[in-house]
């Protein structure tokens, strides 16, 4: 187990360097000048030079990267935004919970929808339910979240007045300037984002669950269980479900990690101040520290979730349990 964790840790550090170096290289290749942006529209070359020096942008790219790593290791800081000079740590600290409420809330929705529907479809392939489900899966996978989000807002928010059109409320009350807060308002404002975010994943997971259940049902050990005289219910619960959920756990872990890096479209459409929207505005403003910060954070999320998946998988599947 220790060896397993150490190997994982090395892998994590490696991934971290790869991801951040790529981010820096992309910025180096793109001929952007954040200093000119930060200096204002009529800045003289001297002004831009001053800003550039202030932001270390006058150093070669590897030196900038060295400063970034040094800053991270020594000061545990991701630096500060080129645009408003806010600390990237605090930007991510504020954004991550928003994205987390979108992703985890969405995950609860999509799992509680796709698992039962996927199982029912698998039990009755070609039934009407199965055909309807597969049609929705096709729509869900094909439709863009921006389109879905706008349609939902228009329908439920604007026409039916059932939900807010867009906006976010903090779950925990007490932040200054908040227009709405508390769990009820939070959930009320998150309904449409959850649904929008969920649809694609629900579609993918219905298909995944359905395929896995069908595959598992044709396994030899399921036949063995039937030959023992086990009831269909017992066969499903004890032999099919656990085995068919194993791949779902893996993919869920990866999806959650990736999604935490930014649910860009849903956040933009519903004005959720999360990581995805942050990275879009940072991109528009050539705000390298914020982009790198989000990249670092997403990398860490992916690594952590993969670790969680690996450990959970060990519990679920004795074959790969590290001994």
């Amino acid at each position: 187990m220790t060896q397993f964790l150490i190997r994982r840790l090395f892998w994590a550090v490696f991934l971290f360097f790869v991801a951040t170096i790529i981010t820096y290289l992309i910025f180096w290749v793109i001929p952007a000048d954040p200093a000119a942006l930060a200096a204002g529209k009529a800045a003289s070359p001297a002004d831009i030079l001053r800003v550039r020096h202030f932001l270390h942008l006058d150093r070669p790219i590897w030196e900038q990267y060295y400063y970034f790593v040094q800053n991270l290791v020594v000061h545990r800081s991701l630096g500060m935004s080129f645009v408003n000079r806010e600390s990237v740590d605090s930007i991510i600290g504020k954004d991550a919970p928003v994205t987390a409420s979108l992703v985890f809330g969405g995950a609860v929705f999509w799992l509680s929808l796709s698992i039962p529907v996927g199982i029912l479809s698998a039990l009755r392939p070609r039934s009407i339910l199965d055909r309807i489900t597969m049609t929705f899966v096709l729509i869900g996978i094909s439709a863009h979240p921006v389109w879905i989000g706008l349609i939902l807002s228009f329908l439920f928010g604007y026409k039916l007045h059932l939900t807010p059109i867009a906006g976010y409320c903090n779950f925990i009350p007490g932040s200054p300037g908040a227009q709405c807060e508390g769990p009820v308002q939070w959930a009320y404002h998150m309904i449409l984002p959850w649904i929008t975010f969920m649809i694609l994943f629900a579609a993918l997971y219905v298909r995944l669950v359905r395929a896995n259940v069908m595959e598992t049902m044709s396994e030899d050990y399921v036949r063995t269980a039937r030959a023992k005289g086990a009831s269909e219910r017992r066969v499903m619960v004890h032999h099919v479900l656990r085995n068919s959920m194993l791949p779902v756990v893996t993919i869920l872990g990866m999806d959650l990690g990736l999604a935490l890096g930014g649910a860009i479209f849903t956040e933009t459409i519903f004005n959720l101040p999360g990581l995805g929207r942050e990275v879009i505005s940072a991109y528009n403003a050539d705000d390298l520290p914020v982009i790198t910060g989000v990249v670092v954070f997403s990398t860490i999320c992916v690594i952590i979730f993969n670790l969680i998946v690996d450990v959970t998988y060990g519990f679920l599947d004795p074959r790969i349990r590290p001994s």
Partner: peptide, 17 residues
Amino acid sequence: IGMIFQDPMTSLNPVKT
């Protein structure tokens, strides 16, 4: 009536003792 199957590698549930 009991039955034994051809492939013992796949005929046992891998996640149960």
